[in-house]
């Protein structure tokens, strides 16, 4: 609790919730325009803001927006998994599988883009879930370690077996019709993922997923088959990543070993750590800050990653709750100084 002295009087900082927020969080239960705007404002501003930036900026920055949105989705999916008690260090696994699935469908079966992406999303989610099914009983750090090594090993596997294009990868895949479609699609997908998952988690069914993170033994003692629920969560989370992989594949018209790169695992976690975990919106915010930043640092070459690591360490130590928690507190609560008698 912060305190300070003004004119010889002791003051203490007090926080109170803004009364609107206290009444309801549900948009259908609102009674006045003011309340509606109060709730809509923090949602609309970023949606419109990013859209404006995306449509107005030159083509190079469109690609940056694209990458940002993709990482934001990976981060949201990571946060979803972690909300369900699964600490994943291998978003690259899901991403890569989705990417190769889309690449495969397009290269070998010559399916068009609007089919490969949904197909890759579902099959990617399924394959990822299957791969992790044997280790679904593991918890915390143990699960994390397995997910960290899997994508790296798959990378070697593709290298060794020369399957799916081997080290060369698959090139010349079908592109999107034009970049407007591309940008609109990814933004729509990102917001859909964010708001969809948020709503899902708040539902009675989603509650069970969250309870697993809080205490999986109590969830079991409540008669819930946690492994079935974890598998469902894995499918949902990895499908989101697989979509990103498929999207990226068509955007770059290429898929290959780099899709399993550590970057796709680490950056989402970094975004979540900075943005604030278990909020879903926080990681998105984190990605919005980190990815463009890393783009600005590009000219430093590999030193970029050094900066990156340093920022991460500082954030993890100095801002353990993340930016989003901080902002939402400032928005939802008023602060004032009160006299201490």
């Amino acid at each position: 609790m912060k305190e300070r002295v003004i004119d010889g009087q002791n003051y203490r900082k007090e926080r109170i919730a803004r009364c609107i927020k206290a009444r309801s969080d549900d948009i259908y239960a609102l009674t006045s325009q003011k309340e509606m705007w109060y709730l809509l404002f923090p949602r609309i501003v970023p949606i419109v803001g990013i859209a404006i930036v995306a449509y107005l900026l030159p083509i190079y920055w469109k690609k940056v927006i694209l990458t940002t949105c993709i990482f934001a989705m990976l981060a949201v999916s990571w946060d979803f998994l972690s909300s369900c008690g699964m600490l994943s260090l291998g978003q690259a696994l899901f991403f890569g599988i989705g990417s190769f699935a889309a690449g495969g469908f397009n290269h070998y079966l010559h399916l068009p883009v609007y089919l490969t992406i949904p197909l890759a999303t579902v099959t990617g989610g399924l394959i990822s879930t299957m791969i992790l099914l044997p280790v679904i009983r593991l918890r915390g750090i143990y699960f994390a370690m397995v997910t960290l090594i899997l994508p790296l090993m798959l990378m070697r596997l593709i290298e060794a077996t020369k399957l799916l294009g081997g080290t060369e990868g698959l090139t010349g895949l079908s592109p999107f019709p034009n970049e407007w479609v591309e940008v609109t699609l990814i933004m729509a997908a990102m917001w859909a993922a964010l708001f969809g998952l948020r709503r899902f988690i708040a539902s009675d069914y989603g509650l069970i997923f969250v309870s697993i993170r809080d205490n999986d033994r109590a969830t079991m003692a409540s008669g819930i088959n946690i492994y079935a629920f974890k598998a469902q969560a894995l499918f949902i989370g990895s499908s989101v990543c697989a979509f990103c992989g498929a999207f990226m594949t068509h955007s770059y018209q290429f898929t290959g070993m780099p899709v399993f790169a550590m970057e796709f695992s680490i950056l989402p976690i970094a975004a979540a750590a900075i943005g604030g975990m278990n909020t879903l919106a926080g990681p998105l915010l984190g990605a919005m800050l980190l990815v463009p930043l890393s783009e600005l640092l590009r000219e430093f070459g590999t030193l970029r990653i050094v900066f990156y690591g340093a920022i991460l360490i500082i954030c993890v130590i100095g801002l353990p709750e993340g930016i989003f928690h901080y902002l939402s507190r400032k928005y939802n609560e008023m602060e004032r100084w009160v006299k201490i008698e």
Binding site: L207, N215, T219, I224
Partner: peptide, 18 residues
């Protein structure tokens, strides 16, 4: 072993979903 992040009444929703 409650679900610490959930309100008390939501804690009971989990067994009610079994």
């Amino acid at each position: 072993k409650p679900f610490f992040h959930l309100p008390a009444y939501k804690n009971i929703i989990v067994p009610l979903s079994s």
